[in-house]
């Protein structure tokens, strides 16, 4: 088990370097980091040269990258061009997005798994068909449609919620945005749980449990659910990273000042340091989430643990 973790940690290093290098090159080489600094006008040649020297942009690219990586590892994500340190932006943005993601994951776990179990145990019945159709609709409709629709109905027409989230962005305000963010994954979790349950239901070891004379409840919880949830847990784990990075649309709709909002602003105003910094942290979140999944997998499935 210990070796398993260490091996996983080492495998993360090349992924981290590769991902950061890619984003660094995209922003610094393909785009011009200085272009957005003089407002609407083009910078004059002297200013451009001064700025390039100040930010080290006259150095070779590999050196720029190494400097950047060194800074990141010491916790310095640079300064946004408005003078505030990027870490300060992160400190306000990440807690908001983390709360939003927590709400979304809770929806996936509680609602998604429950619906999946209910439909998986009642295959072909009206409940099953109903939920299946619903998940199909949710998967087919893009998030921005679901989001805007819910905002319009719940927020504007019926006045159940405030259409835009305040700057504190507490858990209560994030329930509807969290549901919107979770919606597509929620439908996947439902379907995945349902299929996995139905598959395991006809498996030999469940038949054995039946032949042992175990009560139905015990068969479902001990012999069916645990085995069936292994792929579901994997999916939800990997989804943590995807939700945090993918919250841009939801955050825009409900005016939530989280990671997606800052990234959007950063790209719009060509704030190189902001974009690279945030993406770097998101890469780390992805890696951590994947590590978590691997460990959970080993806990849930002894066949992985003892390889």
């Amino acid at each position: 088990m210990g070796r398993h973790v260490v091996r996983r940690l080492f495998q993360m290093v090349p992924v981290f370097v590769g991902a950061t290098l890619l984003i660094f090159l995209m922003v610094n080489v393909m785009g011009d980091p200085v272009a957005g600094l003089c407002g609407e006008r083009q910078c004059d040649a002297a200013t451009t040269a001064r700025l390039r020297e100040e930010f080290g942009l006259d150095q070779p690219v590999w050196r720029q990258y190494l400097t950047y990586l060194g800074n990141v590892l010491t916790g310095d994500f640079g300064t946004a061009f408005d003078g505030r340190p990027v870490t300060e932006l992160m400190a306000t943005a990440f807690p908001v997005t983390v709360r939003l993601t927590v709400v979304a994951i809770l929806f996936e776990v509680v609602v998604g798994i429950t619906l999946g179990v209910v439909t998986g145990l009642r295959r072909g019945r009206p409940v099953d068909t109903g939920v299946l159709v619903l998940t199909l609709v949710v998967v087919s409709v893009p998030t921005f449609v679901t989001g805007l629709l819910l905002q319009l109905l719940l927020g504007v027409e019926w006045g159940w919620i405030r259409p835009s989230v305040s700057s504190e962005a507490g858990f209560g305000e994030l329930i509807v945005p969290g549901l919107v963010l979770a919606s597509v994954s929620l439908a996947y979790v439902t379907r995945l749980t349902r299929t996995s349950l139905a598959e395991n239901r006809s498996s030999d070891h469940v038949r054995t449990a039946l032949a042992k004379g175990l009560p139905r409840r015990r068969i479902v919880t001990r012999h069916l659910l645990r085995n069936s949830l292994i792929p579901v847990v994997t999916f939800i784990g990997t989804d943590i990273g995807a939700l945090m990075g993918g919250a841009i649309v939801t955050e825009r709709i409900f005016n939530i000042h989280g990671v997606g909002y800052q990234l959007y602003q950063g790209i719009l105003r060509q704030n190189t340091q902001t974009v690279v910094g945030f993406v770097t942290v998101l890469v780390l979140v992805f890696l951590a989430a994947n590590l978590l999944v691997d460990l959970l997998y080993a806990v849930l499935d002894p066949r992985i643990r003892h390889v």
């Binding site: 030999d204 070891h205 085995n227 849930l300």
Partner: peptide, 10 residues
């Protein structure tokens, strides 16, 4: 088939 007839995670 005892392998598939026993629960793999218990």
């Amino acid at each position: 088939d005892a392998l598939s007839s026993l629960n793999p995670v218990l």
